[in-house]
């Protein structure tokens, strides 16, 4: 079998094996415990039965995740630009960013609920808080890691500060920016679901996947819980692929990580 064919069929094979093991595990459980690990076909059934509520919850979560993520990307970019100006600015702001990052969301959630009430605003803020830090750290690192010689070259050509930032530092920071973006993209749906779990709005049709988790677990609807987990995964996959595509679009022509040399 050729190597490429093997590499293509192997993931399929592991998938089939995984499902087979799943059924096997289910068969080995005693009948009163079978509900703990619902077999795949029951989860598919749950997708069918709970379709509309899963869909609307996924859309609500997606909205919060996207808003929080977008705010984190823009906000972190501006903050990173400010942080990159001088070591003094970094020294005076970094400790507070660290504190912000270290405060657990579980502690922040009740405060947010009191400030903004449960719902989209709180979910967005929680997503923002989770995505912001890795973005700001990576982007700042990128902005201050510009090749010293290139900075000299720009200075010798009497570049203005604005030219130095936007023609040199920002494009040079792109690989770092995308590293942060990839981390934030996987965190955004998680942030929105956690946010929804603690600070979501339960009123008619406004709940997200976090809220759905609470409902299904209180009702012991195991297949529906698994279906919710799969839906959450799909959201994460959606975000990650969007960022990977964006990264490819902006860097595949020039960045080494996209070169086709096989070494």
């Amino acid at each position: 079998m050729s190597k490429s064919l093997l590499s293509r069929t192997l993931p399929l094979f592991t998938g089939v094996l995984f499902i087979a093991l799943w059924y096997l595990a289910n068969a080995m459980l005693s009948s009163e415990r079978k509900f703990l690990l619902p077999p795949p076909h029951l989860i598919l059934q749950a997708f069918h039965d709970q379709g509309p509520s899963l869909w609307s919850a996924a859309m609500n979560t997606l909205r919060g995740a996207f808003l929080g993520f977008s705010l984190a990307v823009t906000g972190s970019f501006v903050v990173a630009l400010i942080l990159s100006l001088t070591p003094l600015v970094r020294a005076s702001l970094y400790p507070y960013l660290m504190i912000m990052q270290m405060t657990p969301i579980i502690v922040i959630a009740p405060i947010l609920i009191l400030w903004a009430g449960p719902g989209l605003v709180s979910v967005t803020v929680i997503t923002f808080l989770i995505c912001f830090f890795p973005m700001v750290v990576n982007t700042t690192q990128g902005l201050i890691s510009t090749d010293r010689n290139l900075v000299d070259l720009f200075r010798m050509c009497k570049a203005t500060k604005k030219q130095e930032i936007f023609l040199l530092r920002v494009p040079a920071a792109l690989p770092y920016f995308f590293t942060g973006l990839r981390i934030a993209a996987t965190l955004a749906p998680i942030g929105a679901i956690v946010g929804d779990f603690y600070a979501g709005n339960s009123a008619g049709g406004q709940g997200g996947l976090g809220f759905l988790t609470i409902i299904y677990s209180s009702q012991f609807k195991m297949p529906a819980l698994f279906a919710t987990a799969v839906t959450s995964c799909a959201l994460g996959f959606l975000f990650a692929s969007a960022v990977i595509a964006l990264s490819w679009l902006s860097m595949h022509k020039w960045h080494d990580s996209y070169s086709r040399t096989d070494s």
Partner: peptide
């Protein structure tokens, strides 16, 4: 004055042509 460094220090996101244009663009 113009400086040629130890490393080529090109801007990897610009084509060869655009790299050569950088000093002109800055001025």
């Amino acid at each position: 004055l113009a400086f040629v460094f130890q490393e080529p220090t090109l801007l990897p996101w610009l084509t060869v042509q655009k790299n050569v244009e950088v000093p002109l663009r800055l001025r």
